[in-house]
Amino acid sequence: MEKYFYILLFAVQFSFSQNTDHLPTVLKQLKLKESQIRIELFTEKVLPYDKSKSVLVIPKYASDIEEGSFVLDAYILIIDNATGKIISKFIEPNAWTSDALILTDITIDTGLYHLNKTTRAFGIRTDYRTQSQPNPYSETNLSLYIVEKNTLKPVLQNFRIYKYGGEWDMKCDGKFEDIDSTIDIDKLQNKNFNNLIIKTKITKTENILKDEDCISKETIKKETVKLIFNGKEYK
């Protein structure tokens, strides 16, 4: 029993030793200061299909913060985990704006985006929401990136994969719409890249107060569309 305890302890310690924060090393290479980035939105993730590398997303302030609103430049990087050296990067000025629609989270999506036999993309998801209670709204956008000749290239930009919104009296009466999309990879190709199959579920809910009971009526609709690669990006 004691033997297995020490094996488990070593495994945990080894796991923690791999979760290295590469931010200081990367910022030095980019000649940026930590004060120049929105630190709570910074994210880093090891590539599951190439664990010697990580993806980093550095949201750099593009302008001064004004009454809670700000604009961010997107620094999307792939680095070597052993050295922290930047291998490839993509920089998009004024990529994200947080204002009435608040940017709440940025996450790295390492799903199975196999665009052809040799190309696997990774995604960046951005989550937004409003603070309105009578008119709630939130959305998630997805961008996909591939490595091409040691540079990062966006092939899908800010595609909305989730949206929720509605209006109600904050008691019962109201209407809501939930739009949730998933991406499947098609076997058919265009310009040597597989088509993307977008499957969307649209749920509409109407609440009505009747005899002091809040009655909900729900309708569901499903749609399927394809995004085709035009040689530069998916449309």
Rank of each mutant, 00 (worst) to 15 (best):
S15E: 10
K89L: 04
E218M: 12
C172T: 08
H22P: 02
S216W: 02
T104D: 13
Y75D: 07
K187D: 10
H22C: 06
V26F: 06
K45H: 02
I228H: 03
K60R: 15
W168G: 14
K210H: 09
Q18D: 07
S35W: 03
D64L: 11
V71R: 13
D169P: 03
E177H: 05
N135T: 14
K235S: 04
K217L: 08
D80C: 00
L112M: 02
F229L: 05
E223Y: 00
Y145W: 03
K175R: 14
F16Q: 08
K221W: 00
T83E: 08
G68D: 11
A62Q: 12
T200L: 08
Q157S: 09
T20F: 09
K149A: 15
R38Q: 14
K201A: 07
N141V: 03
D178Y: 12
K217V: 06
D127R: 13
L72W: 08
E44F: 01
T25F: 05
L227C: 05
E167L: 09
T126F: 01
I198E: 05
A95N: 12
N116Q: 07
L47G: 02
A95T: 06
N190D: 14
I39R: 12
V71S: 14
D186L: 06
I197N: 11
I198R: 07
I124D: 04
N192A: 15
V225H: 03
L144E: 05
Y145F: 15
T130V: 12
Q189M: 09
F42I: 01
C214K: 10
N158M: 13
I78M: 11
N141S: 12
L72G: 07
Y137V: 02
G111V: 00
I86Y: 04
L152G: 01
A11K: 06
D211S: 13
D99N: 09
K45I: 00
E148Y: 10
T83I: 05
N81D: 11
Y4C: 03
E40H: 09
K210R: 13
